[in-house]
Amino acid sequence: MKITQSTIQQLVITDVKSLDPVKVMIENIQPGVGNITITCFGKSWTSYWGAMSDQTIQEFFVDCNDSYLINCLDRGIRSMIDGEDNEANIQFVKAEICRQRRERDIERLEAREWWDEAEDAVDIKDLVCSWHSNSTLCKLFGDEPWHANWPSVPNPDYEYLERIVQVVREAIKQTLAVPA
């Protein structure tokens, strides 16, 4: 049986405007190897790094940019997500109809039919992207309309984690500046 001991540093960050207390658990397992766990308002994010040169987690975290750290803490999270604004989606579809008409990919009557259908759509994205839709608009973006560049909005979950990462980075900087 092999038993290894490591040192864990815990930070509790409070009194941050519009943010609940943030708890940070930092474990430096050996030089260049460690993990961090961040919790705030019942949610937690954790990441392990096994190759940080000879840096501590604290030094590594301070040196990394927000998007890298956010992706490590919450794999696959996107900074932008598809918007749910039907009007913006209708304008997007209309712009594509105009583009295809200008390039003579579609005829005038087909463009008029698609335009009218788009204007009356309650949920244009579902109408265009749904495999069971009978809409002629399904042809507008080809075989995979969900991959079109639909209007997007900032992801609030990403922005929330970004604020937390920035607060944690600042707290770590402050602890690194304080002599032990």
Rank of each mutant, 00 (worst) to 15 (best):
D157A: 11
L69Q: 09
K2H: 14
I81A: 05
T39Y: 04
V178K: 13
S47Y: 14
H147M: 12
K23D: 09
V12I: 13
C72E: 15
E110K: 11
P31D: 06
L11W: 02
I164K: 05
Q5G: 13
R112H: 05
Q55L: 15
T7R: 14
W114D: 03
S6H: 15
G83Q: 07
K43F: 11
T14Q: 13
E170L: 09
Y48Q: 11
E117C: 04
C64S: 15
A118D: 00
E162H: 09
V22P: 04
Q91M: 08
T14N: 12
E110Q: 13
S152Q: 15
E119I: 06
D63N: 11
H147K: 07
F60C: 05
Y158T: 01
I3N: 08
L140S: 00
N149K: 09
C64V: 09
E107A: 13
Q55W: 09
W146I: 10
L109V: 12
E87K: 12
Q5N: 12
I13R: 00
K94D: 10
L19S: 09
C64G: 04
E27S: 10
R108I: 13
F141Q: 00
E27P: 01
N155Y: 07
I106C: 07
F92T: 07
D15M: 04
W45N: 06
E103V: 02
Y160P: 00
Y68L: 14
Y68A: 10
D123R: 07
E84W: 06
Q9N: 10
H132R: 13
P21D: 03
E107D: 14
L137S: 03
S53L: 14
F61T: 06
V24D: 01
N86T: 08
I3K: 09
Q166P: 05
D63R: 11
W115M: 11
L11A: 02
Q10S: 12
G76C: 04
L69C: 03
V62Q: 04
P145N: 06
A51N: 13
E162I: 08
N149E: 08
I172D: 00
F60Y: 15
L137Y: 03
I90K: 15
W49K: 14
S53Q: 14
L140D: 00
T46K: 15
I106W: 03
T7C: 08
K94E: 09
W115C: 05
I172C: 01
A51Y: 10
T56N: 08
E87L: 14
I13A: 02
Y158L: 05
E162W: 03
Q91Y: 10
C40E: 10
N35G: 10
F92H: 15
G34H: 05
K2E: 12
R112C: 05
E96F: 04
W45A: 01
E96V: 01
N89F: 00
